[in-house]
Amino acid sequence: MPAGKAPKGARKAAPASGSDRIGALPDETLHHVLSFLPAQQAVRTCVLARRWLHLWKSATGLRIVGADGEAPVPFEEVREFVDSLLLLRGSSPLETFELRVAGDDIDVRRVRLWVRYAVQCKVQVLRLSFLGNAHVGPVARLRPDDPPLASRHLTKLELRGLVFNDDFLDFSRCPELQDLHIQDCSLEHAERISSLSLRHLNIRGAFNPSSRARILAPNLASSVLLTFGRTPVLQKMPLLVKGTVGIRGLCEDLCSSPAPNYVSYVDFDKSCRGCIRDGSACVILRAVSQAEDLVLIASPDTIHLLEANVQIKGRFNPNELPSTISSHVKEVEIICGGVDGNVLKVLRFLSKLNINLA
C-alpha cells in the first residue's frame, strides 16, 4: 500500500480543534439531529456547506411548528412551504411527522394530502394539532368520506383540535398502533373507537350528548378518559393495569329516575332517558374491573357537594366482593369536597363490602 494512503472504508481521523466537529458526524447522526428542528430551520442548513446541501431531505422527522419549536405556526404561513418541502424531499422514511398549525380557515383537504405523504413514508409517530386563532375549540373537520388511517408502521398517534367523522377512529388497519392521544377534539360524530393493538389510550374531549359511543380496545394496559356529554361504553379490558375515568361538567348521564343510580359508573335504570338500554349492566365499571390502579372522578358540576370535606380510605374484605369488583383491588380511597345524598349512596354501597374506614 502506498505510503500516506488509508485503507478503503477506514474512518476519517477526528477533526482538529476549531474545525467543523458537527459536520464531521456520520450522515445518519445528522439526519437524526435535524429531525428535532422545526422544518423551516432544518431546510436552512443547506446553506452551511456543500455537504449540508441535501442532508435535510433525509431527516428522520418533520416538524411543522413555530420558530420556537413549541407554539403552533399560522397555517397560511406554511401552506406553500410544506407543499414544496414534501415535493423536494422525496420518499425518505420518516420516524416522526408533527403538524402544529393555527388558523380559523385550515385547508383540511391539503392536510389530508400531507398526512397521506407521511404514511407513505412509513411514519411511526404522527402528531396533528389544529388551533383556532383564539386557541379555543376544534377547528379542523373531517368529512364523512374521509377514510380511516391505514398504516402497518404507525405506533403512536396524537390528535388535537379535530372534529371526527363516524369512521376515522377505526384503527383496524393500523395493526401496530400502541398509543393514542386525543385532546380537545369533538367526538360527537364518533360512534366507535376500536383497535385490537392499542396499549395506551388518553382521551380528553366531548362526546355526543344524545347517543353513546363505544370504545373497543381489549388489550389496553393504561387508559385516561376525561370527558363530558354521554359517557361512552367501554368494552372489557382484561389486561388493564391503570385507569382514570373523569366525568366533567355538562355530563348527560345523571339518572332522572325516581330511584336514581346517578353517574354512569354503576348500573342503569331502564326507565331513565340517560341510562343505557341495550341490556348491558354498566357502562364503565365492568370494563375496568380488572385494573390494579383505578381512579374515578366526577366534577362538582356533575355531583353536587354541599357539606364538609371528607377523605376516606378503606380496605376490602375479599370474601365480600361482588362480581363487578376486581379481586385485585386492595384499597379504596374517596376524596370529595362535601357530602350530600349522592355521596351517602356511595358510602352505603361501600359499607356492604365490609370496608374498614380509615
Score class of each variant (00 low, 15 high):
M1R: 11
K5Y: 09
G9R: 12
A10W: 08
R11C: 02
P15I: 02
D20G: 04
G23T: 08
G23F: 12
A24T: 01
A24F: 03
P26G: 04
D27R: 02
T29H: 04
L30R: 06
L30M: 14
H32G: 01
H32F: 05
L34T: 02
A42R: 04
V47Y: 07
A49S: 09
A49Q: 08
W56D: 01
G66D: 07
A67D: 15
G69L: 11
E80H: 12
L86S: 05
P93I: 09
F97M: 11
E98A: 03
D104N: 13
D105L: 07
Y117Q: 07
Q120K: 10
S129C: 01
F130T: 11
L131N: 08
G132C: 06
A140N: 11
L142M: 02
P144D: 03
D145Q: 03
R152T: 13
H153Y: 14
E158V: 05
R160K: 04
G161E: 05
L162E: 03
N165C: 03
D166K: 01
F168T: 00
D170S: 00
L177G: 05
Q178V: 06
L180A: 00
Q183C: 05
L187P: 04
E191P: 01
S194R: 03
S195Q: 11
L196K: 09
L198Y: 04
R199V: 13
L201M: 15
N202K: 12
I203H: 09
R204L: 11
G205C: 07
N208Q: 04
R214W: 06
A217D: 07
A217L: 08
P218F: 14
S222Q: 13
T227M: 07
P232K: 07
V233K: 04
V233H: 13
P238H: 11
L240E: 08
V241S: 03
V245I: 15
I247A: 13
L250F: 03
S257P: 02
S257T: 07
A259Y: 13
Y265S: 10
D267A: 10
K270G: 06
K270H: 08
S271F: 06
S271R: 12
R273Y: 01
R273P: 07
R273N: 05
R273W: 00
D278Q: 13
A281N: 15
C282H: 13
C282E: 04
R286Q: 11
S289E: 14
Q290V: 04
E292T: 13
L296S: 13
P300L: 09
P300Q: 13
I303D: 02
I303M: 12
A308R: 15
N309E: 13
K313E: 15
G314N: 02
R315T: 15
L321Q: 06
T324R: 13
K330V: 09
I334Y: 12
C336F: 10
D340C: 10
D340K: 08
K345H: 11
R348K: 07
S351Y: 14
I355K: 10
L357Y: 10
